[in-house]
Design a binder for these strands. Structure first.
Lengths: 218, 218
DNA sequence: TTGTTTTTAGAACATTTGTATTAAAAAGGA
DNA sequence: TCCTTTTTAATACAAATGTTCTAAAAACAA
């Protein structure tokens, strides 16, 4: 009998409109009216999907985190850690416009979560998930006996994680300087610096011209 | 003839009230009324020092950056780079409550600057200054022949700078995990990893009990 | 004390905010 | 076609916003 509308689809549409408003005008301008206008619907209509503004913002933040999680999940692995770790982190870092938009919006939510209790839990959860990646990274490196001896795992996890988020912030703030190439180079250099020399899958000093790895022709 | 009031002192008082409002309730709540109330003056009075809200926020942001600059300037150096570099970064990182308050406020301004043109220049300036510290760090390490050979300066500057800001973010977000001790340990480990082994002023594996360096009595 | 100027306080303004309410429009089953 | 329910749109309202304006208060010089 009733008009059938895909609720989840509408909510997603509104969430993405929220992202655009935040990116263009800041989270201070993320009012229900501005978001409704950006989404192309009326405020009364939007209220059928989000009964309060707080709900709307929480959902929009959650959608950002889900997009990141999805990207991590979709990453395909080769089995070679020295290649897979940069690939994975490439998916988390703002290495293209879409991911940079997400990152800008994410930082807006993160800062807001410092004074907004309703956003704090999600921030902590994402933080924990991201950090656990590095725990797994070191477990993997350790199991494959790639790591330099004598490293303090707890400290190294924090250090690698700090490199990631520091790069992310700098890429958002200074995209012209911290390009995708710079980010990947930093990640690879950091990874290399943690490992024993002469790891087979990674050449320590590649010649600057040829880019192809393992140039063994048949 | 007139009532004499120290303008700069009043402006500073208002700026600090702005910080407190931002830290307690978020930058969205940094309205002229809320700030005036926090500063203990009326909005009409505040208007004698800041004719617009934009001016007020710009000034408050500038004051934060000046506090950080001052701390950098005040740092006393021993002449031993392996000791001075951590000391310097200790002054930039949120290693106590006062600095953490500043950092939270700074991040609020930084995120706002993404969509507020009037704050962008200052953000870029501070970013340049902070980054230049690491250029100097590598110049210093290089001149003293402490660096490992074959390092790519441009990449290493970005990497060390990323460690700093990543730590700062994580300390603000998770102070219970990223404590001052963790931050300093990460910084020292990063510095050590860049340097040749057996640097005289830093012991690679200090015994866990004795903390005093160079225990030469008399 | 008197006079002059700055500082202060508070009210006033139009605009924007989140939320509530109301009625019209839409869509599918009878 | 008509009926039922959801979805949509528009208005209404109190509260908060940035800014302006006016007059009182304060402080120093005469």
């Amino acid at each position: 009998m009733p008009k059938i509308v895909d609720h989840e689809l509408q909510k997603a549409k509104v969430a993405e409109a929220t992202w655009r408003v935040i990116q263009k005008h800041g989270i201070e301008q993320a009012s229900v009216r501005n978001i409704a206008e950006e989404a192309g619907i009326s405020v009364g209509s939007m209220r059928h999907y989000f009964s309060t503004q707080s709900e709307l913002l929480s959902y929009s933040m959650k959608r950002v985190s889900e997009r990141v999680s999805q990207r991590i999940y979709d990453t395909v692995f080769s089995g070679d850690l020295m290649q897979d770790i940069p690939s994975l982190l490439h998916e988390v870092l703002p290495t293209d416009n879409e991911k940079r938009l997400e990152m800008e919006v994410w930082f807006s939510f993160v800062v807001k979560s410092l004074s907004d209790e309703s956003l704090r839990a999600l921030r902590h959860q994402v933080d924990d998930e991201l950090r656990s990646i590095f725990v797994q990274v070191f477990n993997g490196l350790s199991e494959n006996q790639l790591l330099l001896p004598g490293l303090d795992f707890a400290i190294e996890v924090e250090r690698f994680y700090a490199v990631l988020d520091g790069l992310a912030i700098h890429a958002v703030m200074r995209p012209e300087r911290v390009t995708p190439e710079v980010m990947i180079a930093v990640i690879k250099q950091h990874l290399l610096s943690l490992c024993q020399p002469n790891v087979p899958s990674m050449v320590k000093k590649p010649e600057s011209n040829a880019k192809k790895e393992q140039p063994r022709d048949t």
